[in-house]
Simulated assay, not measured.
Amino acid sequence: MTTEQTAAAEESSKPVKGYRLLLPSQWSQIPLRQGTEEAVNRVLEDVYSRIPEDAPPDKIGPYKKEIAKRFRSSVAQAQHRNGLDLYVPVKPMGDQEFNLGASILVTETTLPERARGATYADPTDLAAQLLSREGMNADLSSGDVDGAVAVRREYVADADPNQGIEVASRRVEYIISIPGQAARWFIAAFSTVGGGDPRDELAEVLVEWFDAVMTTFRWRRG
């Protein structure tokens, strides 16, 4: 075994302490466990700073309130889902204005033991069970992400006004087995409304973009 191989083996044997994900500068990270309020305020201040100086004063106040309401609602929903981090595109891309039409929510889940003292089966089998139990019509595929078993699920989620979801969205989820922790799974969930239709060309492009982002995923080990 070469020195490089030995070093790689030693690194992969260390316990997972977190993750890394490379995103364009237009996207901002909102930590959902600690430092949330500070991150939210930074994002809002950045958005407010781009309001045109010649904007009518009587329009600025209501605009700020609406942006803050929508953004804080999205963050609160992510926290309610026991999220770790929320990523949103809050900086302009070309002529694009600030919007919440896309997001990435990072969470983790622990699978319940099927019986007292039971041991966990192969991660691939458990991933299939985790995905199939919801019974939704989705495209599923499996593979690995940074050496860990992963399942990719893609589907369209219908609007649900009762849950505060006003429009349908395209969803792509990567469910990844956390190395050395058979019961724990990492989930990176992307959502977009596209150009108003979750099946339109913009949605397709953004799904491809998210798949490319996930190729940059790496575990942080300590």
Rank of each mutant, 00 (worst) to 15 (best):
M1K: 12
M1W: 07
T2V: 00
T6W: 04
A8D: 11
A9S: 10
P15G: 06
P15T: 06
V16P: 08
Y19C: 05
R20W: 04
L21E: 07
L22P: 00
L23G: 03
P31D: 05
Q34M: 04
Q34G: 01
E37K: 11
A39L: 03
A39W: 06
V40W: 00
S49P: 06
I51E: 03
P57A: 09
G61D: 14
Y63E: 11
K64P: 01
E66Q: 13
E66S: 12
I67Y: 03
S73Q: 15
S74R: 15
S74F: 09
R81A: 15
G94Y: 01
D95T: 13
E97M: 08
E97I: 09
I104V: 13
L105G: 06
V106L: 10
T109R: 15
L111W: 03
L111M: 13
E113P: 07
R116G: 09
A118F: 02
T119I: 09
A121V: 07
P123A: 03
L130A: 13
V145L: 14
V151A: 14
R153H: 02
R153V: 12
E154C: 00
V156P: 03
Q163L: 14
R170M: 11
I176S: 05
P179N: 02
R184T: 13
G196Y: 01
D197K: 01
E204W: 00
E208F: 04
M214K: 02
T216Y: 06
R218P: 01
R220Q: 15
R221G: 09
G222K: 12
G222M: 04
